[in-house]
Nucleic acid binder design. Structure first.
Lengths: 214, 214, 214, 214
DNA sequence: GATGAATGAGGATTCATTCAT
DNA sequence: TATGAATGAATCCTCATTCAT
C-alpha cells in the first residue's frame, strides 16, 4: 500500500492520489506500456476525450489492473509528465557533459541536433492541455529545471564562468529549440529549409550573445 | 434555416454543420459573448473538459439557444478559430500598411509591439488541442495566410522587392513573435527581461537576414 | 377563441385542448395539408419520433401557426383519428346504401372491393401506436361505430331483418377486411393470390353465415 | 467483447451493434427481466414514448448495466423481436408434431387452441410500430418462417402430401389466428362469443379448403 | 394574425470508478 | 492479485411549447 511520488505543492492537499510504482519488473514494463498507450491516445484524441477503457483495451491491461497502477486518469497524466521530465533532464545532462569548451556555433549545433533527436515525444504540455490542475503547474516546474541545465551548458561552454544573463537566455533558447522541433515536423513540406533556418537562428543568437558577453 | 461558414475541404463532405450566423443584432452580440465565454472556459479547463452547460450558464444563454447557434461543441471551436483568424489577418494587414521603408530594427519593433498589443487572445492551437478533426487543419491554413502577410510586410519594408527567402523566414518570424508573447506572460516573474531578450532576438534575426540579402 | 371537438369522456377532464377548426377556407386547406404531412411523417417515423418542427417544415407552416391550429402534438393525432373516422363512416354508409338485397357473395364482393379502394390510408391505430392516452380509446369507439354500420349493411342485404348474430359477425368481418387490405399490400410479391384467397374467405364466411341463419 | 446476433441484411453494414448476450446465469435472467419490463412499457406507452430510464428503474437494473446489455433502445426492440420469433417458432414446431392425420376441424382447433394459449405476448409488430429500421424487416422475415411451419402443419395433417395452395393459405391462416387472439382480448366484453365466432371461421376455412383440395 | 427565436425539462448515452468474484 | 460486471453522476443534445416582435 505504498504510495510514492506524492505531490508537494505549497498550495495543494498532500494526499491527492498519484500513481503507484510497481515492485516487480513485469509491473514496471506493464506501467511503461500503459504510459505509451496513454500518450498515443492522449495525442490522438486529447486528454479529455481519451477514455480509461480505451487505454485499458489498447494496452491490454484489464481495467481493474489499470486502476491498480493509476487510481485516476489524472494520475496517468502526472506519471507521463514525470517520466517525460526525467527523460528531458537526462537529455540535457548529457548535453551539458559535452558542452565543455564548445564554440558558440558548436554549442548551437549540439543543442539543435539533440533537439532533433529527441523530437519523437509529442509536446506534453500540448497533449495534456486539459488534465486539470497540476500537470500545468508541474510542467512549469520542469521547465525551470531545464532552464537550470541550459544555464549549466552555457556555463560549461564558456569556460565554467556562470554569467547572470544566462538565466535570461535559457528560456529563449528552449523556445528556439521548440521552433527547431516544430520545423522538423514540417520537413515533409519544405524539404528541411525550415530546419536549417531555425538552426541558423540558434547559431546567430548564441554567436551574438556569447561573443558580446565574452 | 441558413447555414453559413460551411467548411470547404477537398477531402470532406461539404455539409458538415458548423455554426449559424444570427440574424439580428441582439443575436450577433449574444454569439460574441458565447464565444468569449467559451474561450475563457476552454482556456481554463481545456476543450475536452469544458461542458456546454457551463458555457450556457456563464454566458447566460439558455442551453437551447446555445445549441441553436452552435449545434455541437466542435462548432464553437470552429467559430473561435474563424473569429481569431479574421482578427489576426486584420492585425497583420495593419502592420503591412505601416511596414513600407522601415529599417530592419524598425520592422522588428513593429512586429514585436503589435504582437504584445494583440497578446490578449490565448493561443488557440493550444486551447483547442483536442477539438477533434478540422480545427487543427483550419489552424494550419490560417497559419499559411499569415505567412503570406508576413512576406508582404518584409517585401514592403525592403522596397517592394519580394525575395524567395522571405517564404522561409515567415514561419520562423511568426514563431519568434510567439516567443515574445509567451515572454510577456512571464513579465510578472522577471520584470520584462524575457520580453527584451525576445525582442532582441527578433531584431537580431531581421537585421541579419535583411542585411545579408540586401 | 372557440374550441370545438373537445373530448367527452366520462373519465377525462373536459378541458384537454384539442384542435381548432379554422374559420376560413384557406385555413381549412392549411389544416388538411398539415394533417396530410403529419400522417406521412407519423407513418414514416412513428408518432413518438415525429417532431412538430418537421411537420411545420414539411407542411410549410410556421411553427407558430402550426401551434395555433394544433396546440399539442396529441391534438394532431386526435384530428387525424377524427378525420379518419369521418371518412370511414362515410365509406360504410355508402356501402350500406348499395347493400339492399345483395346476395351473400355480392355483399362479400362489395365489402372487399371497397376495402381495396379505401386502402390508401395507413392503419391509423398502427401509426399512432404511442400517441398516449385517448387516441387508442377513441379508435375503439370508432370501431364500435363501424360495427354498427356493418350490422346495418348485413341487415339491408338480408331484407331489412336485423338478426342478433350480426353483432358478433361485424367485428370478425371488419378484421377479415383488414386481412384483405394487408393482402393487397403484398400484391407485388405474390401477384394477387393473397387478395383472392382473402376475398374467398370473406365470401365463404358470408355465404355460410347468411345462409345458415336465413 | 463478444457481440452476437449481429444483423445480416444484404443492404446493411454487418457490424451494427445489437444486444450483447450475457456470460453468466445471473446476467441471463437479468436480460430476460429487462426484456419483460421493456415489453410491458413499450406496450403501455409505445416504443417512442418509452424511456430507457423507466426501463432501467422498473427492471431494477442500473442505467449503466442496461446500456451494457442493450447499447441502444432499438437494440431492445431487436432482442424482443428475436426472443419472440424463437418462441413463436417453437410454438409452431410443437403444433406441427401433433398435426399428423388430424381432421380439418381437429387441425383448426389445434391452431386456435394454441393461439389462445400463446396469446400472452402482445403483438410485437404493433408495439414496436416506430422502432425505426430493421425490426420491421425482421418481423417480415419471421413471418415467412412461420408461414413455412404452417405449410408443414397442413402437409402433416393431410397425409404428408405438400400442396401448392398451402403457400397461399398460410398467411391467411396466420391472420385468422390473429383475429382469434384479438377476439380473446375482448372476452370480458362479450363473454367469448367473439372467440367462438373466430374459431368458427378457422374451422370453416380449413374444412372448405382441405376438403376441396383433397 | 403570423413568425421564428428563446426556453429548459427531459431523454439517450458515456465513462470514471468501485467491488464482488 | 486480477478481472470485468456494475454503478450512477454528469454529459450532450432534442424538441414541445411559449412569447416578443
Amino acid at each position: 500500500m505504498q504510495r510514492i511520488k506524492t505531490k508537494h505543492h505549497e498550495d495543494e492537499a498532500a494526499d491527492i492520489p498519484t500513481w503507484r510504482e510497481p515492485q516487480r519488473a513485469r509491473g514496471r514494463s506493464r506501467v511503461n506500456s500503459i504510459l505509451d498507450t496513454a500518450l498515443a491516445i492522449f495525442t490522438e484524441q486529447g486528454f479529455g476525450a481519451a477514455t480509461m477503457s480505451e487505454i485499458s483495451d489498447r494496452s491490454k491491461t484489464s481495467i481493474g489492473s489499470l486502476y491498480r497502477f493509476f487510481p485516476t486518469k489524472e494520475s496517468i497524466a502526472d506519471a507521463l509528465v514525470y517520466r517525460h521530465s526525467v527523460r528531458v533532464e537526462e537529455h540535457w545532462k548529457r548535453i551539458a557533459l559535452r558542452a565543455r569548451d564548445l564554440s558558440a556555433t558548436g554549442l548551437a549545433d549540439a543543442f539543435v541536433d539533440s533537439a532533433l533527436e529527441a523530437r519523437r515525444d509529442p509536446n506534453l504540455a500540448f497533449v495534456l492541455a486539459d488534465a486539470r490542475g497540476d500537470p500545468a503547474a508541474r510542467q512549469r516546474r520542469n521547465r525551470l529545471a531545464v532552464h537550470a541545465l541550459i544555464v549549466e551548458c552555457l556555463t560549461a561552454a564558456t569556460g565554467g564562468e556562470p554569467r547572470p544573463e544566462y538565466i535570461v537566455m535559457a528560456p529563449i533558447l528552449l523556445r528556439l529549440l521548440e521552433i527547431v522541433m516544430a520545423a522538423a515536423d514540417e520537413k515533409q513540406t519544405d524539404d528541411g529549409q525550415a530546419v536549417s533556418e531555425a538552426r541558423a537562428v540558434v547559431r546567430l543568437y548564441l554567436a551574438h550573445r556569447l561573443q558580446s558577453t565574452g
